[in-house]
Design a protein around this nucleic acid. Sequence first.
DNA 1: TCACTCACTGAGCACATTGTTCAGTGAACA
DNA 2: TGTTCACTGAACAATGTGCTCAGTGAGTGA
Lengths: 158, 158
Amino acid sequence: MAIDHLDGRLIVLLAEEPRIGVLEASRRLGVARGTVQARLDRLQSNGVIRGFGPQVDPAALGYPVTAFATLQIRQGQGSDVRTHLATVPEVLELHTTTGSGDMMCRLVARSNADLQRVIDLVVGFEGIVRASTAIVMENPVPLRIIPLVRQAAEDDND
Amino acid sequence: MAIDHLDGRLIVLLAEEPRIGVLEASRRLGVARGTVQARLDRLQSNGVIRGFGPQVDPAALGYPVTAFATLQIRQGQGSDVRTHLATVPEVLELHTTTGSGDMMCRLVARSNADLQRVIDLVVGFEGIVRASTAIVMENPVPLRIIPLVRQAAEDDND
DNA sequence: TCACTCACTGAGCACATTGTTCAGTGAACA
DNA sequence: TGTTCACTGAACAATGTGCTCAGTGAGTGA
């Protein structure tokens, strides 16, 4: 579960230059190929690295509008709402949270007008009492993990 | 910017089985290798596919607690706050939004107790007027893109 | 102190894949 | 009609992969 410094360097290296293979990575890190392969296998079976799937940009797909919706759910309807939201492609993620609302989801849409359609799709469902939406204007820090990896690798410096 | 059916199938295939190469993908899709290579190059230069970096799970890294913080910023301090938040590894993403708050960020922490430290780090900064935090309890729909890709590919069925 | 385990190293092998180029084909379009 | 474009199928050398092996050194427990 904890990663050491070599793990951290490997993850950062792969994040910065995903095209390089195991052999090139071993050269960059100054270790044997087998070591890199073993570390990668371990990181993947650990679940630290979930996979190497393509990172798709919704904006480039034609969905440039992002919004966060906070949903308040009627008691006992949570399960139905989840099932419903999971069927909506524009719902990119859904969390249940503490705090004022009960759920929080990330939405995308083709335009501000299209966002209305998506919101209607999302909240037009029995069980949702109230919804408030915040439209994203800028994204100063895009979803990132590298700084956290660096910190995690430094915390248990081998 | 718009993707056709073959692009969609290619992205879905790569998302489901990232380990397969260009050659195997061309076999699965029933097209020539050069076609897959050209499509991939185009999708990447389009920006539709940002890259193939490792998808790291913060929980497996030792940060099992996720929270969303809504921040209200003092007029004119937005730039300073962004710079500050960008230096905090536990801030995984930051957005400026419409609505009640001015910014929204995703945080992770090692524990609920550690979350307090992170929140103090985040909001202990001049320019932040008010902050409200929602701790994530469950994640019924993890961040996903495939359903949206399918829909985008169907919209302009070639 | 003596095994024992574990991770890493460096090497080797057969095999598959990659990057690249080429000419040929068919569809769309002006 | 002629041009452009994407796709095909093939070829080539170069490279990387999966896999195995024996040897080394550090750390652990009896």
